[in-house]
Amino acid sequence: MSTLRRPVLRTWETSLTDHDSSVRTARRHIRDQLTAWGWSGDRVDDLVLIASELVTNAVVHACQGCGEVRLYLQEFDGDCRLEVWDPRYDLPLQERRPRRFHEGGRGIDLVRQLALDFGVITRRGAGKRVWVRVLLDSRCPP
């Protein structure tokens, strides 16, 4: 992980309800915003998939009746940071060994494979932000 801090070029954020339909809305918002910023290709698809996984986790496991999930994007020179906020402060990144024929339990592993870096920031009373960093431009080193 690099200690060099690059300036944020652009930021974007939105709030979503804690409803299952927010996962589809998050995918659309992320794709639309990155496209508006001029990004395209597989890495945008990766970031949309990651957003889908993280919003699903927030809605299904953390939010249940909390009312709101928030999405944040920060574009740097050649990469992007996505954050998903929910009001609970418990750690979400617990690995599970998925059973062979079960549909769930693979999301965090998928995020690990697609993201350059990821983590969680928690503050009691202020919820948590699960963040990922994705290299959008393969020509720029992390």
Results as ranks from 00 to 15, higher is better:
residue 104 G to D: 14
residue 7 P to A: 09
residue 74 Q to N: 14
residue 131 W to Q: 01
residue 34 L to T: 01
residue 119 G to R: 04
residue 103 E to Q: 15
residue 90 D to Y: 13
residue 47 L to H: 00
residue 10 R to Q: 05
residue 62 A to C: 14
residue 85 W to C: 03
residue 127 G to A: 08
residue 62 A to K: 03
residue 14 T to F: 00
residue 15 S to Y: 04
residue 10 R to K: 11
residue 53 E to V: 08
residue 52 S to H: 07
residue 134 V to A: 06
residue 55 V to Y: 00
residue 89 Y to N: 15
residue 83 E to N: 07
residue 45 D to C: 06
residue 69 V to M: 06
residue 77 D to I: 04
residue 45 D to H: 15
residue 25 T to D: 07
residue 102 H to N: 12
residue 119 G to E: 09
residue 133 R to E: 12
residue 15 S to I: 03
residue 130 V to E: 00
residue 17 T to A: 15
residue 6 R to E: 08
residue 115 A to F: 04
residue 99 R to T: 09
residue 99 R to S: 10
residue 50 I to E: 00
residue 36 A to V: 06
residue 92 P to T: 08
residue 47 L to T: 01
residue 106 R to T: 11
residue 40 S to N: 11
residue 24 R to H: 14
residue 36 A to T: 09
residue 118 F to S: 06
residue 15 S to P: 07
residue 125 G to D: 11
residue 128 K to E: 03
residue 124 R to M: 15
residue 68 E to N: 14
residue 37 W to T: 00
residue 50 I to C: 04
residue 110 L to Y: 05
residue 140 C to L: 09
residue 34 L to G: 02
residue 36 A to G: 13
residue 107 G to D: 06
residue 103 E to F: 14
residue 104 G to C: 14
residue 88 R to V: 06
residue 98 P to I: 08
residue 58 A to Y: 02
residue 41 G to S: 07
residue 140 C to Q: 11
residue 64 Q to T: 10
residue 140 C to F: 12
residue 53 E to F: 05
residue 97 R to T: 14
